[in-house]
Design a binder for these strands. Structure first.
Lengths: 183, 183
DNA sequence: TAAACCATGTAACATGTTACATGATTTT
DNA sequence: AAAATCATGTAACATGTTACATGGTTTA
């Protein structure tokens, strides 16, 4: 149950329409919570029915007409409650690690190319994060209101750094493996 | 579509019953792919209907009777195909990062305690992985068949190391934040 | 023999994904 | 006026979660 809270956070940062939200979920928010426009519209409908958000009265709601939402007090209260509530960390799911374990049984044929491709993708993402850091958080002490945002970006940078290092190491190991055929 | 492949991998490593698989998904496999027993039984039924696995003929299948499965050639072929196929990395979803971003809007009240709790949990997990490493991969060159297994464990260790460091850093920032009340 | 546990499931629901539909606005 | 794009949605399905049901085996 995190998508509604991701949407409430985004709307508190800036009231938006469904498509604008979708765009933001493709960029900054999407770095740690992704969602398609279908999910977003469905959830906007639920949140509105539940009295946590409302459509801005300015625009008339017709099909194909832009409709922006803002957060109501009930929505802000729910988000504050959720943020403070104790929550167990969810177990990760990582497909690449699963594929590596499978490769240990059925052979590594074909896997190396995709490891290389992923390495490139993670390097690109890392470079993008580092650009954002240089632009939005220049060296020196962050203003208090920027501390949390910088902390979140740091997590992204460090995670991408980890993956590039791990994939590099994995490729080195592959180079040394006796054969890459199926067992 | 990764759960069936996780199950095929587990069954190739060792033919098992549903409950035995569930236990293995709570331990080693669960470190990067979790599943409940309900998911596992549902998927075993599908894989059997699809001719990728079969129940070992030795035991008679009755409700409450143990039923073990083994992988058929079609299942092994499908797993090899999936392992080698190019797959895009899935966008992460991390609830704690989302909560931090929400806290930047609605205030950090109550969040610090859960950060501490998560730090403890990640430290425990890290210690568990390090124990496994010392036990299963003593210093020195791994045998070729252990390389991939060690690589996967290394990812777990490095990820948990990252989280303990990041959470420690986050708590330091919290200590310096002006106030922890809602905005 | 009652309780606890082992083992396999069913049912209902929540969430996420994929394909498609439809009206409004802008561009060529 | 046709095509492209913006914007909001529906429908069908796949996957994951939570609660409960049922029979068999062991232990107090």
């Amino acid at each position: 149950m995190s998508l509604p809270h991701a949407i409430l956070t985004a709307l508190l940062e800036k009231p938006s329409s469904g498509l604008e939200l979708t765009r933001r979920f493709d960029k900054s928010i999407g770095y740690f919570w992704s969602a398609t426009h279908q999910q977003i519209y469905r959830e906007l409908g639920r949140l509105e029915a539940d009295g946590q958000i409302r459509a801005l009265p300015s625009e008339q709601p017709a099909r194909g007409q832009k409709k922006s939402y803002e957060v109501l007090p009930a929505g802000r209260a729910e988000l504050a409650r959720w943020t403070a509530a104790s929550q167990d960390p969810k177990p990760h799911r990582d497909v690449m690690l699963l594929r590596l374990r499978a490769a240990a049984v059925v052979g590594t044929a074909g896997l190396e190319a995709d490891l290389r491709r992923h390495l490139d993708l993670h390097r690109l993402q890392l470079a993008e994060y580092q650009e954002i850091e240089q632009r939005d958080f220049p060296p020196g002490r962050d203003a208090p209101q920027d501390r949390l945002r910088h902390l979140v970006l740091r997590a992204g940078i460090d995670l991408e750094t980890f993956w590039t290092q791990w994939l590099t190491h994995a490729l080195e190991e592959f180079a040394e493996l006796p054969g890459s055929e199926a067992v």
